[in-house]
Amino acid sequence: MRITWWGHSTTTIESNGTRLLTDPVLTSRIAHVRRRRGPTPTAEAGHCDAVLVSHMHADHLHLTSLPLISPDAALVVPRGAAKLIHADSGASYSERCIEVAPGNQLRIGGLDITVVTAHHDGRRLPWSAHSGPALGFRVEGTPSVWFAGDTDLYDDLAAEAGPVDLALVPVGGWGPSLGPGHLDPERAAEAVRRVGARIAVPVHFGTFWPIGCDWMKPELFLPPGEQFKKAMAEVDPAVRVDLLAPGESTEVGAR
């Protein structure tokens, strides 16, 4: 299996001849938030068999990035998201949507996928009519992967998402505060312990930041990656942490 991190929560999972693209943000900017570290993903990033969208927030369901994705790729989205996609992008995109909720299972190419819970606000915006469940995804196989989306710790995390070989786990955010429904580096390490992963790749940090705010809380931009690696060593030193830069890849073999 090959994992490529394109920045923020955007990763490519390549296994069994299938490419999955998670929460694609393939541009240099999301509204008032700009890509501050790493290059804008190349056209290769958009090549996939399916997209896995964890929730409707604009930094995860990024409508502007949809035209940069393979035109025949399935869009696996939270229940209710197809209506939003149809209103913004039209039927050529909404007809490719597969709406899912926690507990659903599907097969994409050579991979089986189980949809799991994420404890996070699933609304597009606080005042938006578009809402649905926030999701994580467990990609079955050898090795297996938990893509957490955005989530906080919750009681059934181990039972729903674990055990897995690899965790793609959020450890930070995109601004000078980290609101509810997110993991900081220490809580991310605990999440990895709960799902029993032997390898962890930290994501959702060190990529985007509000324009003009580079000076604000710099300790919340890049440091969460190293902080997670340190916290993981304290929680479970047997876990291998692959700390990638945007655009880098790692190879994961069978146990």
Rank of each mutant, 00 (worst) to 15 (best):
H62S: 07
A118W: 01
I30C: 04
E248M: 09
Y154D: 04
A50M: 03
L84S: 02
K83I: 05
H182S: 13
G110V: 04
G225V: 05
P71G: 01
T142N: 15
D214N: 10
R138N: 03
G225Q: 07
D155A: 15
V25Y: 03
G136Y: 08
G175F: 13
K229M: 04
V115S: 01
G90S: 07
A91V: 08
S28G: 15
V195F: 09
C97W: 02
G175H: 14
D88L: 13
T11K: 09
H62C: 07
P163F: 06
L52T: 09
S144W: 09
G132E: 01
A254V: 12
T117C: 06
P202A: 09
V192I: 13
L183S: 06
A50K: 05
D214F: 00
Y93F: 15
A189W: 11
V77E: 03
R240V: 13
T22C: 14
P170D: 02
C213Y: 15
E14L: 11
I211F: 10
D72C: 04
L220V: 06
A188H: 08
C48A: 15
N16G: 12
W6A: 07
P78A: 02
E14V: 12
L26S: 07
R124C: 04
R34N: 02
W209S: 03
H55A: 13
K230H: 12
A233T: 06
E234Q: 10
N104I: 02
A82S: 15
A161G: 07
L52N: 07
L111I: 11
V25D: 08
S92F: 10
S70Y: 07
A134F: 11
G122Y: 06
R198N: 14
V145H: 10
Y93E: 08
F147C: 05
D112Y: 00
D214M: 05
M1H: 11
R138V: 15
G162Q: 03
P180F: 06
E44V: 10
M232H: 01
I69M: 08
A231R: 09
H32Q: 15
R79T: 08
L61S: 02
R19W: 00
E190C: 00
A254R: 12
V239M: 01
M1V: 12
E219D: 15
S94I: 03
R2H: 12
E99A: 07
W127I: 13
P133N: 10
R79F: 01
F147D: 08
G46S: 05
L61G: 02
C213Q: 15
E160W: 01
H47A: 14
T42S: 14
V235A: 11
R187E: 14
G109E: 02
M232I: 11
G253W: 09
L63R: 09
A148I: 03
T207C: 13
P218A: 11
D242H: 14
L20F: 09
L135Q: 12
R198V: 14
R34T: 12
P180H: 09
A188K: 07
R124I: 00
P224Y: 00
T207M: 11
A188Q: 07
S249R: 00
S89A: 13
G38L: 04
W6E: 04
L135H: 05
Q105L: 04
I13S: 10
E251I: 10
H32I: 14
L21K: 08
R107V: 13
P180D: 04
I30E: 05
I85S: 08
T11M: 12
E160H: 00
E251N: 07
